[in-house]
Design a protein around this nucleic acid. Structure first.
Length: 272
DNA sequence: AGGCAGGTTCTTA
DNA sequence: TAAGAACCTGCC
């Protein structure tokens, strides 16, 4: 289907923003995998895009996935150049980034894997897991088979040595435990939607292998709580170097997570 | 070759 | 309660 998108929307920046690991440049477009769905999306010109899905599937799934209900342009307008020139520059640089509405289970496993890994390594591990325990769902334009992200049950059935072989390193036992706990129902990620921010954080921190950083990534990217502000080495560097007197979180509530994305994306580009 | 990469757990004081 | 070490793996 053909689609016109007026709001901030930059496929390349979203793919490189670090929030998703199965969103990659492929031929003349982008290959996007979310749980068990596959989309190929291509920028045609100006604000026109070509999507491999039907209108029904766009309306029923991808529209929400891309968070099209929310105007990121309007949120960017909250930022004042006079008030905070660094954030302003970051937001100009990151214009086009959106926070995708991704699946809590997929995000949980992805960010558990992410610890002490760089992005290519994270992606490689996740693709191995999907090929190992997921289902074939499509072929991308390059002819490569696309696998779904394994369900909790599918992942829980994988023996530890096979998980380890996905280059998980010491994280293998974290992934195995998460799969076991979620598939058994002991941990119900859907019910976590009902928790307020504070209790959601508390619940996530109880999971084995989930610390403060991974928990906040899960809150922001898996539960789409846009005020969550994950602190990793890059963001900590920004806060230290550019905000010695503190970042004004109250000023940007409830969208601090979006500001975090701009700062993160910008900081990685300029190597402060 | 040794250090480090989007951290967390475990141990020690 | 708060530092510091240990941890898999891959890449420079």
């Amino acid at each position: 289907m053909r689609l016109r998108i007026e709001d901030d929307f930059d496929l390349k920046k979203i793919a490189d923003s670090g929030q998703c690991f199965r969103f990659n440049e492929c031929m003349d477009g982008f290959s996007v995998v979310a749980s068990d769905r596959y989309l190929f999306i291509k920028h045609i010109q100006d604000d026109e895009y070509e999507l491999s899905c039907s209108e029904e599937e766009y309306e029923g799934f991808w529209k929400k996935y891309f968070d099209m209900e929310l105007s990121y342009k309007k949120i960017r307008a909250l930022i004042s150049r006079d008030e905070d020139v660094y954030l302003y520059n970051a937001s100009e640089y990151g214009k086009g980034i959106r926070i995708l509405r991704q699946d809590p289970w997929e995000m949980l496993i992805s960010f558990i894997i992410s610890q002490r890994k760089n992005i290519p390594a994270i992606k490689a591990s996740i693709e191995k897991i999907c090929a190992l325990a997921g289902k074939e769902i499509a072929k991308d334009p390059e002819g490569k088979t696309v696998y779904s992200f394994p369900t909790p049950t599918e992942l829980a059935s994988v023996p530890l040595p096979e998980l380890t072989a996905c280059s998980l390193g010491y994280r293998d036992k974290y992934v195995q435990r998460a799969a076991a706990d979620v598939s058994s129902g002991m941990v119900n990620l859907n019910s976590y939607n009902e928790l307020d921010d504070e209790n959601l954080l508390k619940a996530l921190l109880e999971l084995y292998g989930v610390g403060i950083k991974v928990a906040n990534c899960e809150i922001l990217f898996g539960y789409h709580r846009l005020d969550a502000f994950p602190r990793d080495v890059w963001i900590n560097r920004v806060l230290e170097n550019r905000y010695p007197d503190g970042f004004k979180f109250e000023r940007y509530a409830p969208y601090n997570g979006i500001m975090q994305q701009y700062l993160f994306f910008y900081s990685r580009s300029e190597n402060i």
